[in-house]
Design a protein around this nucleic acid. Structure first.
Lengths: 326, 326
DNA sequence: GGGGCACCTGTTAGCGATACCATGAGCTGG
DNA sequence: CCAGCTCATGGTATCGCTAACAGGTGCCCC
């Protein structure tokens, strides 16, 4: 920086100003400095800047399994939004979902002076981890419940599940069975609640939900049980991958989709249009959730208080796995 | 830090030593300092440390689309390995795959003083971007070709494709058609080469490969064309998602899998065992690739020169989409 | 004509850690 | 008994940058 200053015939302070508040420097001086910067290929040292300003331009993301479609897409959305605002994203993934690891993840990021943290861990244990936060660190949650002490961006799972359930009822099905995700996941319980309320609103019987683990494997295993029940004609499955397993189980048991049984998934993974049959599902706009979360975090960093909640509406995508009641 | 020193009755220098080279401090002193650290919940300021040491404990990952299963899994593997070695990972995703964006991604990371960069962009354009690197920055590539000036960790696409092709030939098929990925992707061309060589080694006819874009959609569209050719009895598809589209196209055209046509995919995404029929495919151990890449980067940071190449062997997983020639 | 105000640029003092060298205590051995 | 070594610790300078204030110039307007 000293060299740049010398080459441009100004002081180091002026170089700093050109880079951080260009409007405060006379255009000719600014041009000279910028020329010198290019000439010497000068790059400011971020560590020194962080040391004195206390802000790093880096935000942290705490996340559980970034190979899952949902978290990966959310992360991608965050990263894109961050890039557009000249932020860099550091990630801390967790070996397990519990309070201690979440706290450790946040600490790991904080020790690198991130300006804020986005937690992508839609699990009950996140709530505990978020209740004891280091003071002064802006934190935003993705997909969490209403009981969190921080701002939240999330897809409205309840609405999406209700919509899917109503779609099945509107096709004449007497009631709708549900294969849910693991009970401690916020998305899973939101979908259960939405499904249940839609059934109750129409006065339908509410079958006991079955519980899977998000994998196609669990969908298949539990699907085999459902396939043997003759009065099961409509199933709302909590994600597309489990729905894929259910579809296979139904087929193997000789029950046709959608002629005998209708199936609705959740997520709209890019492949779901190519399932057999193409899957009716609920699309979640993960990218939008990521962007909203980033925006909330920016607000938080700028000093906005309070616990805002940004809901993203999901969308029912009707394909060929649903049909009228046999 | 000053406060910790005072509370422990030592100088700041000794506190620093306790944290960085504990063996150089007498055990009793060390214990007093550690007690003070805990008492005050002291955390070292990484910016100050970076400023003086020049090393940050952060590594950067440049990546294209982290919602794709392969890149996401690789990133996850890198992140896990990094966590175990107390490194933090920053990501720079690219809006497009070309030299300019790759360079910009690396620059963005470098401006945050990362200790090194892993490039996950198995595309020809990466090669150009990697030929003009800032000197002194350790860089490792994932999935790149042999012509790169940096160390590379990769799955042996050539071997995997050859294995898949030989599997089909061994079932009696006269030859094997290929649906490849986009031609500028290194993985895609590696798989084409492996497939071609396996056919040529047995003196079989080599059909013109068809080109998709990794999506189930493209697999479906191109699959419809293949399904109409009666002498197509075996297809090696360059990834599982395209294979899914091919399976649907074949089914819709009335050609049974595997009785009429055999299909092999590539990747072994977690769902491929629940395709219809369950997909024979080539498993890539992305996590291992990530770990190897991280290890190579550590070596590079430690000063090891040269362009090592770490190959991870893929594994053929035989399921029900392949059978003897009709 | 000069007080006052913009506007631009420079000087100085840290931010919080570690590198490097100095210091002093305690021990060893001829 | 002291030169000379090891070991533990401390003092000081420094990394590269920006906040805060100071100073100088030119212009406006009373």
């Amino acid at each position: 920086m000293e060299d740049v200053a010398e080459l441009a015939g100004v002081s180091a302070m002026t170089v700093s100003r050109v880079l951080n508040a260009p409007e405060k420097v006379r255009p000719e001086t600014r041009a000279r400095v910028l020329a010198a910067v290019r000439e010497l290929d000068y790059r400011p040292n971020s560590a020194a800047r962080v040391l004195v300003t206390g802000r790093s331009g880096v935000l942290g993301v705490v996340s559980f399994d970034t190979t899952l479609y949902g978290p990966a897409s959310t992360l991608f959305g965050i990263e894109q939004a961050a890039r557009d605002s000249d932020y860099l994203v550091s990630i801390a993934s967790l070996p397990a979902l519990n309070r201690s690891w979440i706290t450790r993840g946040i600490d790991r990021l904080r020790s690198q002076s991130v300006d804020g943290v986005i937690v992508v861990a839609p699990h009950e244990s996140a709530a505990e981890g978020l209740r004891h936060l280091p003071p002064g660190l802006p934190v935003v949650d993705v997909g969490g419940g209403t009981d969190l002490p921080v701002p939240v961006a999330a897809v409205d799972q309840y609405a999406g599940a209700a919509r899917a359930t109503r779609h099945l009822l509107s096709l004449g099905h007497r009631t709708v069975w549900h294969l849910s995700g693991p009970p401690n996941w916020i998305d899973a319980s939101g979908r259960v609640a939405g499904w249940r309320s839609a059934l109750e609103a129409e006065g339908r019987e509410v079958p006991e939900p079955l519980v899977g683990d998000w994998t196609a494997y669990s969908g298949y295993e539990i699907g085999k049980r459902l396939a043997r029940e003759p009065d099961v004609t409509a199933i709302f499955v909590a994600n597309d991958h489990m729905a894929m397993g259910v579809l296979r189980a139904l087929r193997e048991t000789g029950r046709r989709v959608p002629e005998d049984v209708s199936v609705v998934g959740f997520d709209d993974v890019p492949e779901s249009a190519y399932f057999w049959p193409p899957l009716t599902t609920v699309r979640q706009n993960f990218g939008e959730v990521g962007r909203q979360a980033f925006q909330l975090l920016l607000d938080r960093i700028a000093g906005v208080e309070g616990k805002a909640r940004r809901m993203v509406e999901p969308e029912l995508v009707v394909r060929e796995s649903t049909g009228v009641r046999p």
